[in-house]
Amino acid sequence: MSDQCLFCGIVAGSIPSVKVAEDDTTYAFMDINPASDGHLLVVPKRHSKDLLEIPGDDLTAVTLAAQRLAKVAVEELGSDGVNLLNCCGAAAWQSVFHFHLHVIPRYADKARDRLTLPWKPEVAGDMDTIAALGARLSAGQG
């Protein structure tokens, strides 16, 4: 645990939270700045700064906990869908540097859902650029 980390403080119980679920590896709690009704966060109990640093076993545990809670959001809150969101790095909107997955229930009723897309997914990209970047990513795997 990091003494300076907000989420480590939440996991330790020194910072209050609305706990949703907990197991040996993960802790899930309600987001206090929710994008939709039922928005929560799932974190590993062991501190990892971000997606690039988290050990695989903790990543697996967080992802499986998020999946379980996404199912609960659909069943118990009546959400029409769920987004899982991770932000890795300040340029990608990460504001707390302890790995976390946002579990964001989505609703057709916009009174319950304040999240909007920041880009237009229906706008096609340049296929030559897409192919070149894909080749670089493929080659960079080792």
Rank of each mutant, 00 (worst) to 15 (best):
G9S: 01
I10N: 00
V11G: 02
V11E: 00
A12H: 00
S14K: 11
I15V: 06
S17P: 04
V18E: 05
V18L: 03
V20M: 12
A21G: 08
E22N: 03
E22L: 00
D23K: 03
D23M: 03
D23P: 12
T25E: 11
M30S: 14
D31E: 14
D31R: 13
N33G: 14
P34T: 15
P34A: 15
S36E: 15
S36W: 14
D37A: 14
H39M: 11
V42Y: 08
V43P: 01
P44G: 01
K45D: 04
H47P: 01
H47K: 04
D50V: 05
D50I: 06
D50F: 07
L51S: 01
L51W: 00
L51M: 02
L51G: 01
I54R: 01
G56E: 05
G56Y: 01
G56K: 02
D57W: 05
D58F: 00
L59P: 02
L59T: 04
T60A: 08
A61M: 12
V62H: 06
V62C: 14
A66S: 13
A66T: 04
A66K: 03
A70R: 03
V72R: 14
V72M: 13
A73V: 02
V74S: 14
E75Q: 08
E76N: 13
S79N: 09
S79C: 13
D80E: 09
G81V: 05
V82I: 14
N83Q: 08
N86Y: 07
C87H: 06
C87I: 06
C87M: 08
C88I: 10
A90M: 11
W93F: 10
Q94A: 12
Q94W: 05
S95E: 10
S95R: 08
S95F: 05
S95L: 05
F97K: 02
H98Q: 08
H98S: 12
F99P: 07
F99T: 03
L101W: 06
L101T: 06
H102F: 04
H102D: 10
I104R: 15
I104P: 15
P105G: 10
R106D: 08
R106A: 11
A108D: 07
A108L: 06
K110P: 05
A111Y: 04
A111K: 09
L115T: 00
L117H: 15
P118D: 14
K120T: 10
K120Q: 11
K120N: 12
P121R: 15
V123P: 10
A124I: 12
G125H: 12
